[in-house]
Design a protein around this nucleic acid. Structure first.
Length: 150
DNA sequence: GCCAACGTTGGC
DNA sequence: GCCAACGTTGGC
């Protein structure tokens, strides 16, 4: 049974449409240890809700799939990268990323408000740990979100 | 643009 | 190892 996840991205920076056009893309730039640990726990084939944060409105846009399991996020080693971490390097490999592949956009975008109001989605990490950008989603919650998204 | 929540850093 | 200061996230 594959695990389910939720990935947040600011659509101004990288939206589900960007991923649709690229088909597959690295999920780079995660600089939080708990989120990184979840990236490392992902398996190829795991499905992820693609969530648009810092958007008007924020919400769930669609689904993507883990296409390649975790490997070092080398953007941390590049001084020119916005994701540069001076404390990291090829010998340290502090941060990780996975590759994700576009699966589908929901027929209906699901605003955060709507997700919050849905009683079947009570207890989602999204509502309690607002700042965690990579988070696990229970299979039941995942299925419910797909059902709402159409 | 504001600001609350909260993760990280660094002095002690 | 504590905790204040600081920076970032992300909803509003």
């Amino acid at each position: 049974m594959p695990d389910c996840w939720l990935l947040k991205s600011e659509p101004d920076v990288f939206s589900l449409d960007h991923l649709r056009r690229k088909r597959t893309a690295p999920w780079d730039g995660v600089r939080n240890y708990q989120a990184r640990n979840y990236l490392r726990a992902m398996h190829a084939g795991d499905r992820c809700i693609f969530y648009h944060s810092n958007a008007k409105p924020p919400g769930a846009a669609g689904v993507c799939v883990v296409a390649r399991e975790h490997y070092p996020d080398h953007t941390a080693w590049d001084p020119a990268s916005p994701y540069h971490d001076p404390g990291d390097g090829p010998e340290v490999k502090r941060w990780s990323m996975v590759d994700v592949r576009f699966e589908r956009a929901f027929a209906r975008f699901l605003p955060l408000d709507m997700l919050r109001e849905d009683r079947q989605l009570a207890g989602m990490v999204l509502f309690g740990r607002a700042r965690l950008s990579v988070q696990p989603v229970s299979p039941a919650h995942f299925e419910r979100i797909c059902e709402l998204g159409g």
